[in-house]
Amino acid sequence: MKRQPWVNTSLTALTYIVAFAMFFPILWMIITSFKTEAAAFAFPPQIIFEPTLDNWRIALFDSNFLEHLINTLIITLASTLVAFGFGIPAAYALAYYQTKRSDLTLMWLISTRMLPPVGVIVPLFIIFRDLGLRDTHTGMIIIYAAMNLPLVVWMMRSFFLDVPYEILEACRIDGTTLLQEFRLIVIPLALPGLFATGLLCLIFAWNEFFFAFNLTVTKAAPVSVYISSFKTAEGLFWAKMSAGATASVLPVVIAGWIAQRQLVQGLTMGAVK
């Protein structure tokens, strides 16, 4: 678009300002994590200060942070694997072996992702209590796998549809088995999709709070629950809180930065490419 140069320059300046304003709270959190506790809640807030790593050391190693981080890691990774295990064969069949019910299955799967969690939390709580799944990794893995499975099916199906079907047809005429077809053709060709889908599953499971808060106590509580205990910090441990908070979002933020394009696809269940 042909515009006056000054219009373009000022629009760019505006963009920088808005981006900085949106990012500022996060930047401030990172800065605060390197302050001493006294400097963290000094008033007025200090911009120039002597940086220290003490809070990071205390927040990471002299607290329960690592235990919860390990819980988050176990639950996110395992639930993503389970969602893949169930979801990829389903996506594959829904892409290539359509029946009259395929469309309905797909719509039903997407509708389960849209159930409000509060609509199922009460029975889940009771069932988990009775089966001894409350506050266990297994329980949370089941929940997050179910949360991410529709995403896996929808995204992987749209990636599978991009695999040229002539290759599959040729395979089938050559008499390859299902497993060979999968291992040698489909998975390698859909690998970028697999990577993107996995990243999104990790992000969703990592950040989830509602189920984690209601279905865990301490043993299996992930980092999102641990961080929420700082809700009454009242200026007491801002620096340590900031260090812990920064550490707990870092993996997902980096993953999201890498997978910006896939993020859009995943959030819209592949409806926008």
Partner: peptide
């Protein structure tokens, strides 16, 4: 920078 608030877990944003 602009997408980062969306990547941060809701409890961290709220605590922050």
């Amino acid at each position: 920078m602009l997408i980062t608030p969306f990547l941060i877990m809701p409890t961290v944003s709220a605590v922050l």
